[in-house]
């Protein structure tokens, strides 16, 4: 290109280090999420081992090569139990997050798009439900059903759509005031078409982000319910159940039965939050256009 700067120009770069730490963070998060998902999907069908296999000769062994996470008070391999537990927790988390996001998006979009008394009514409902502590409401809901996976999913979903509804409504309100909606109306678009073609695609990235961030949230909630003995039945090893069952051994100085399930709650949470944060930066249109002139 002849219009480039003259020959022999010395170029200086700016701010490269900040960029590389972000890249490292994103890659580590992506790797952790990938490992988690793969372990949960592949280990149970591929590994022909029984997580329930009791071996009373080997109870409460500290971590070793044979049992990397140690064994529990019935001599069951903790690594295997953790993977199964993570599987249950993730299933509950993803299902609950999806359901909560659907409810929240529907309520928030309806409130934002309809306006008037419908909006006031829906948002007062959201405020009212928000004023009740999540866990209390969750316990109330699970208590109405027999213990199982779906009551927990319903309980988490019904207590967690409120924030999504608020986010989506705010986003719809801000989009609705933009001139491009005016232009669409002036171009003959119906209310329905504006909602489907202009408003919904605008809020979907935010709603999807909220859904992703809600997965760990829902996992925590499930663990909390299970820890209280109100969540999943004890034969389903969720992470919360594992910690709950191991409470006694912690007092006896055996740290591994609580530490590893705990770590498996925390690490995927951080990894998902790391990925979601990077994604949020990407979908923010201002950042995208900053690089343009």
């Amino acid at each position: 290109m002849t219009c480039e700067a003259p020959q022999g120009t010395v170029w200086r770069s700016y701010g490269t280090d900040r960029r590389s730490t972000r890249t490292v963070r994103v890659r580590v998060s992506a790797a952790l999420v990938a490992v988690t998902v793969l372990a949960v999907l592949l280990v149970p069908p591929l590994v022909q081992l029984d997580q329930q296999a009791v071996d009373l000769q080997a109870k409460l062994l500290p971590p070793s090569w044979a049992h990397p996470f140690g064994t529990d008070d019935l001599g069951r391999d903790l690594l295997l139990r953790c993977v199964y537990g993570l599987r249950v927790s993730l299933l509950v988390g993803v299902a609950a997050a999806l359901a909560a996001t659907l409810i929240g998006t529907a309520v928030g979009a309806a409130a934002g798009a309809l306006g008037g008394w419908a909006e006031r009514g829906l948002m007062r409902l959201v405020d009212t439900l928000s004023s009740v502590p999540h866990l209390l409401l969750g316990i109330f809901i699970v208590a109405m059903f027999r213990p199982g996976v779906w009551p927990v999913v319903v309980s988490v979903a019904l207590t967690h759509w409120l924030s999504t509804a608020r986010i989506v409504r705010a986003e719809v309100l801000s989009l609705r005031a933009r001139p491009f909606i005016d232009a669409a109306v002036s171009g003959g678009a119906s209310r329905w078409r504006v909602a489907i073609r202009h408003l919904l695609p605008g809020v979907l990235p935010q709603a999807a982000l909220a859904a992703v961030l809600m997965v760990p949230h829902a996992m925590w909630h499930e663990s909390a319910l299970s820890f209280l003995g109100l969540g999943l039945p004890t034969h389903l090893a969720s992470l919360g159940n594992l910690i709950q069952g191991a409470r006694g051994s912690l007092l006896a100085g055996q740290w591994w039965p609580t530490l590893f399930p705990g770590l498996l709650i925390i690490v995927p949470t951080l990894a998902i939050a790391g990925l979601a944060g990077a994604w949020r930066e990407r979908i923010n249109p201002r950042r995208r256009s900053e690089l343009m002139l």
Binding site: A5, T9, V10, W11, R12, S13, Y14, G15, T16, R18, R19, E290, L291, L293
Partner: peptide, 22 residues
């Protein structure tokens, strides 16, 4: 046309994917 970029360069406020010379 690049005039705001010129101002950012003088203030050292160029984004990370920019390079400057001169």
């Amino acid at each position: 046309c690049g005039k705001s970029v010129l101002a950012s360069a003088l203030l050292g406020l160029l984004p990370a994917n920019a390079q400057a010379a001169g």
